[in-house]
Amino acid sequence: MGINGELFVMVLLVMLIIYGLYRRFNTWLDEPEKPAVPVDYDSYEPDGEAASLLTDTGYEIIHGKKRIPIEIQMDAQQLESRLFIDYFVRKDDELFAVKVARSRMPVELTGSGLRDSLLIYQLLYGDMSGVIYIDTDAGTLRVVKFTVDLE
């Protein structure tokens, strides 16, 4: 291969690298940024059975109850709803949303039951490692981590 052949290969490689970087940048721009996990050490004093269970097992409560309003458009109808997260906690550099069991809304502890009830809480925030599900009646704390494979 002569000088012209080597130059052609180099230009082709540079063009491929530039194209790859351009594609990655556009993909990055199109992805919506997820909000950071709220932190509120100062104004929240954890109390109750669930908070005790969390702190006794080594979790640091970094935020109390969070209300997340949701606006829903269905055809021409405007609806409203909300999600509630009971706590945000940290342990070993991992962040978790916490849901406390409610007798009127039991979570079925199966793959599909956990997915339908808890997956949304992990997906809401970018740094979330999983969801902790606490049943204060049974005195149990369960760590649920979801891995979603989109390929």
Rank of each mutant, 00 (worst) to 15 (best):
S129N: 07
D137V: 11
F146D: 00
E80Q: 15
V143L: 09
D75E: 14
E108P: 06
M128G: 01
A138N: 10
E108T: 13
L21Q: 07
L21P: 08
S103E: 15
E151H: 08
E6C: 08
R104D: 05
V131F: 02
Y59H: 09
T110D: 10
T147E: 15
E60K: 00
R90F: 00
G20T: 11
T57M: 05
L119M: 15
Y125P: 03
S112C: 09
Y59T: 04
T110C: 08
L53F: 08
L150R: 14
K66Q: 15
K145S: 01
T147Q: 12
I18L: 15
Q122A: 01
A76Q: 14
F88T: 03
S52H: 15
T140P: 14
R142L: 08
F96I: 00
T147K: 13
T147L: 05
Q77G: 09
P38C: 00
E80C: 14
G20Y: 10
D127I: 01
L124G: 00
L13I: 05
V89W: 01
K65W: 02
E31G: 07
Y87V: 02
K34P: 02
F96N: 01
E45D: 10
I62G: 13
D135S: 14
T27R: 15
D127C: 03
D135V: 10
I134M: 13
G113I: 05
D75T: 10
L12Q: 10
K65R: 15
T110L: 02
G64H: 04
F84R: 08
S103D: 15
Y44A: 06
V144A: 02
M15D: 04
E45T: 14
T57E: 12
P35F: 00
Y59I: 02
S117I: 02
L123K: 15
E60L: 01
M15P: 06
Y87C: 03
A36L: 14
R104G: 03
I68G: 13
G111I: 06
L16I: 05
Q73D: 08
G20C: 11
R115K: 15
L79W: 03
S112T: 10
P32S: 06
Y44N: 11
Q78C: 08
L7A: 13
V148W: 01
Y44M: 09
I62Y: 04
S112L: 13
E60R: 03
M105D: 12
Q78M: 08
Y121W: 02
L123D: 12
L7T: 10
L123M: 09
L83T: 04
L95A: 04
T55I: 05
W28C: 08
R90I: 00
L124P: 01
A101K: 12
Y44L: 09
I72S: 09
M10V: 06
V98I: 11
I62P: 12
V9T: 09
Y19V: 06
F25M: 09
S129I: 01
T136F: 10
K91R: 06
Q77C: 07
G5S: 08
Q73M: 09
R82D: 07
E45V: 12
W28S: 15
S117T: 04
L79K: 04
L109M: 07
K34M: 00
H63E: 08
D42V: 07
E108F: 04
G20V: 05
D135Y: 07
L83R: 12
P32L: 05
K34A: 01
E49V: 11
V131P: 11
T57F: 02
N4E: 10
Y87G: 07
